[in-house]
Amino acid sequence: MSEFARVLATLRQIRGLSPFFALDVGRPDDDWHDGEALSHGPALPDALDRIGARYRTAERRVAASLFFLGYTARLLSPVVAARAVGGVAPDVRPANVWWRYSPEGLQVRLKDPLAGVGIAESLEPVVEAVHAVTPVARGLLWGNAGSSVAGALRTISRSGVDCGALADELFADPPLKGTGEFIPFPGEVVFRRRSCCLYYRLDGGGTCGDCPLTPR
């Protein structure tokens, strides 16, 4: 079976776990951006402006955090699920991604069903691109990535797949190492991150389930 076929077979296998595990492949309509547009041009700043308007916040770093949290949730969830079921994880580097921010929120899809590389290599260009347009801490962004990975593991574990060894592997090295810790809890994946995604800064916002801050 070719690499393309193995990646496509894996994506079909995992897409029913949750909407966050469904990742489409192929060229979309014209209003989508090439992943490379994250690093240059107006696409990313414009998306942050629209996120700020949608959530009524003038804090650029909050909008940046929300963007990256959505980006990682939609791309890392299928990567983690693919690893969990023993399939071939897709390539989610910017060069293989289409994206757009629409009234429905952030949407992503793959250009081609290629086999991927590690999470750090896949996301580092996006972390740097977001950090370049607003002074949000890199550690906070990697914390968002860790939170997205942990959330995927939690959902997968509820389908009966043992994710303990995979969790240890994914968080064994930087940049995910040190973003948080797993707390023993019978029958559940519980993660407590060391940074805050800033969601509490929104009007009506509170702290997330894995937030290190006192619940508010």
Rank of each mutant, 00 (worst) to 15 (best):
residue 1 M to C: 05
residue 4 F to E: 15
residue 7 V to N: 09
residue 9 A to C: 07
residue 12 R to Y: 00
residue 12 R to H: 11
residue 19 P to R: 14
residue 20 F to I: 09
residue 22 A to K: 14
residue 26 G to D: 00
residue 29 D to F: 10
residue 29 D to I: 06
residue 29 D to Q: 15
residue 29 D to Y: 09
residue 29 D to R: 15
residue 29 D to T: 15
residue 31 D to G: 11
residue 31 D to S: 12
residue 35 G to R: 06
residue 39 S to K: 04
residue 43 A to V: 13
residue 43 A to K: 04
residue 45 P to K: 13
residue 47 A to Q: 11
residue 49 D to A: 13
residue 51 I to Y: 03
residue 56 R to Q: 15
residue 60 R to A: 15
residue 60 R to Y: 08
residue 64 A to H: 07
residue 70 G to K: 05
residue 76 L to M: 13
residue 78 P to R: 12
residue 78 P to G: 07
residue 85 V to N: 02
residue 89 A to H: 13
residue 90 P to R: 07
residue 99 W to H: 04
residue 106 L to S: 02
residue 106 L to T: 10
residue 114 L to V: 09
residue 120 A to D: 07
residue 122 S to I: 10
residue 127 V to K: 01
residue 130 V to S: 02
residue 130 V to N: 07
residue 135 P to F: 01
residue 135 P to T: 02
residue 136 V to K: 10
residue 136 V to T: 12
residue 138 R to V: 12
residue 139 G to Q: 11
residue 156 I to S: 00
residue 169 E to H: 09
residue 170 L to K: 05
residue 174 P to S: 03
residue 177 K to I: 04
residue 177 K to A: 15
residue 181 E to W: 07
residue 184 P to R: 14
residue 188 E to C: 10
residue 191 F to A: 00
residue 192 R to V: 10
residue 202 L to V: 12
residue 203 D to Y: 11
residue 211 C to T: 05
residue 212 P to Q: 02
residue 213 L to Q: 03
